[in-house]
């Protein structure tokens, strides 16, 4: 039994991960603090797989939210928006249902597909796995914020050019993932691009052209996708 934590420790652990505990805790810290433990377990799998681990923040002061609606201030694409919502509302539902920011899509609502991907404090996050109350004070960036009205980001343009989309429902999530990858990877390669979007699913089958689009966006260059036989 030397490996297993003592009873009281175990209880603490369980507490730290319970949903109730989430509701009681502050800001984004609780959500990210759980991540390193999980990510570290896989950390030695491969040097090539660079896993971005959000910095661990110790649990701070415990704050209660709810029950019932509370004021929540979210800084989205540089603008602070105040919502009156229950603490159980996810960031995804806050964006889509309360703010009519529908670029992030709801597909699995449990961290399994990446359609709801946003960037928070520089980290790629599934917005369906965050409670909006946790995201107060954070810099939230959604697909609506990556290019000004009437313009298109390089990544979006590359997706359109390479036909890296069919129905397009997974596309905003992939665009956010690739945007994040290209910001953080100085020398993106086919392998790094594939690794970067392993947390996103596409049902129509556009992956190969997403890789092409990412590499095209990285160079800013022209040219058609290399998965095709040129005519």
């Amino acid at each position: 039994m030397t490996d297993s934590p003592a009873n009281d420790e175990r209880e603490d652990l369980q507490n730290a991960f319970s949903r109730r505990r989430f509701l009681q805790t502050l800001g984004a810290a609780a959500a990210v603090s759980a991540a390193p433990a999980i990510a570290n377990a896989n950390a030695k799998t491969s040097e090539a797989e660079k896993i971005t681990i959000p910095p661990a923040t110790p649990l701070g002061e415990v704050k209660n939210f709810g029950p019932g609606e509370v004021d929540v201030k979210l800084k989205i694409n540089g603008i602070v928006r105040t919502l009156r919502i229950e603490p159980r509302v996810t960031l995804l539902d806050a964006l889509r249902d309360r703010l009519d920011m529908t670029g992030a899509k709801k597909v699995c609502d449990r961290g399994g597909c990446g359609a709801c991907t946003i960037i928070m404090n520089g980290n790629l996050m599934y917005s369906c796995m965050l409670l909006a109350v946790e995201c107060q004070g954070a810099e939230i960036e959604t697909i609506e914020g990556i290019a000004p009205e009437g313009e298109f980001s390089t990544v979006s343009s590359a997706f359109a050019k390479c036909d890296a989309l069919q129905c397009g429902f997974c596309t905003p999530g992939f665009v956010m993932t690739i945007t994040h990858h290209l910001r953080n990877e100085k020398n993106p390669t086919m392998e790094s691009v594939k690794q970067s979007c392993r947390g996103n699913l596409c049902r129509c089958g556009t992956y190969n052209r997403i890789f092409d689009a990412a590499l095209l966006a990285a160079t800013g260059g022209a040219g058609l996708p290399n998965t095709t036989e040129k005519k």
């Binding site: 529908t102 670029g103 709801k106 036909d163 989309l165 905003p172």
Partner: peptide, 25 residues
Amino acid sequence: AGKHIPRFDGLAKASGRAKYSYDMN
């Protein structure tokens, strides 16, 4: 016809601006 032509709605979809039924509010 026969050329590689980017789809008409590619940018609308890739920018997250295309409104799907799920997105109607």
